[in-house]
Simulated scan of single mutants.
Amino acid sequence: MRAGEALVAADENEHTALGAELLARAIDAAVRERGVARVALSGGTTPGATYRKLATMALPFDRIAWYWVDERAGAPDSPRSNFHAARADLGLDRPGAKSAGVFRMEAEDPDLSAAAARYEAHLRRAFGVASAVAFDAMTLGVGDDGHTASLFPGTGAAAIDDRLVAAIEAQPGRGLEARVTLTAPVLREARLVVVLARGDKKRGPLAAAWADGPDDEVPARVLRGAKGKVVWVLDRAASPSG
């Protein structure tokens, strides 16, 4: 059973606009209610257009704190860095850019478990040790293998529930670098999750994510337990319902 609702865009422009509008509304609501909006960003090519659109909108950028859902092991200026891409798309690397903080995962550390522990400690300080780590908005994608964040199938990563942030070992046989990632409990706590997907290659993985079955088989299924709102923003090619 699918978590949340699906919005199917007619074209790429509408897909971009839908994603940006959902995030903008969540940001505005969070700032009104709590004084700050905490947003967790995913990488990949799909969300870039949405981030660039968001950067042009009239938002209280000095009240937005930016975090990351996951990161590949490597330097923050690497072309493969999720931080590097999202920071550029949002204009956070421009002189004078305003924000309430930009908090990247330090995935250049050879000890990724230590990097994960530091990020978790920061989250607990930022949200309050006794509070749930509930991001106001979060972007996610779905990989061709059904992964989301850096929770990959067949690894047990989707079942990690004793940490907020985990180090994920490299899988050379699958061409995957080591990663640092938020865990499923954090994904489920977000007040709004916007899942962005486009193209016919995503139709099968999305259908699998919406079907019943073990989370470890298709980790995007972890969103079925989401406590907040989940919106799948798709184009017609990606939509399992056509």
Rank of each mutant, 00 (worst) to 15 (best):
F61V: 12
G48A: 13
G44Y: 03
K98H: 10
A10G: 13
R32K: 11
P47Q: 07
A3V: 09
A85V: 15
L192R: 05
A86R: 03
P172I: 09
D109V: 05
N82K: 11
N82M: 12
V195I: 13
P79H: 11
K227W: 01
P79C: 15
A126C: 08
V31Q: 06
R191Y: 05
D109E: 12
R38A: 01
G173Q: 11
R2S: 14
A24W: 13
D62F: 09
A220Q: 00
L7A: 13
A238V: 06
D93F: 10
L164W: 03
L151Y: 05
G199W: 07
R174Q: 12
H15R: 13
A30M: 07
I160V: 15
D144C: 06
L234G: 04
D136K: 02
R236Y: 00
S241D: 11
T50G: 06
D162M: 01
K227L: 15
L223I: 08
L187G: 04
R87M: 12
P240G: 02
G225A: 15
R124S: 07
A238H: 00
A137P: 01
R125F: 01
R174S: 10
H84W: 15
G199E: 04
P110S: 10
T16V: 14
E21C: 09
G146F: 04
L151I: 08
H122E: 15
L223G: 02
K227M: 09
R80V: 12
R25T: 14
A114T: 08
A238L: 05
L164Y: 09
A58I: 05
A226I: 03
I64A: 08
A137Y: 05
L23P: 03
R72H: 12
F152G: 02
A115T: 03
A58Y: 01
S78L: 11
L123A: 08
D93G: 14
R118G: 05
V180C: 12
L7G: 08
A190S: 15
V222F: 07
T183C: 11
H15A: 13
G44R: 11
E5W: 14
I168H: 00
G213K: 01
T50E: 08
A130H: 15
L182R: 04
T50I: 10
W68K: 01
G175M: 11
E33G: 06
L112Q: 01
D200M: 05
S241C: 00
E217D: 13
G128W: 04
F127K: 05
D200T: 07
A197Q: 02
R174V: 04
N82F: 09
E108Y: 08
A159G: 06
R125I: 04
G143N: 03
A149S: 12
A97T: 00
T155K: 06
E108F: 10
V129R: 15
A20D: 07
A55C: 10
A20P: 03
R34M: 02
W210T: 00
A85H: 13
V194H: 02
A88L: 11
W68F: 14
A190Y: 03
V218R: 00
R179Y: 10
R80A: 14
L192I: 04
S241T: 15
G35Y: 09
A58W: 06
G199I: 06
F152M: 08
S150N: 01
A65F: 04
F152C: 05
G146K: 03
D77N: 15
P76I: 12
A170E: 06
D136V: 08
R32A: 15
E120C: 09
A166K: 00
A178W: 07
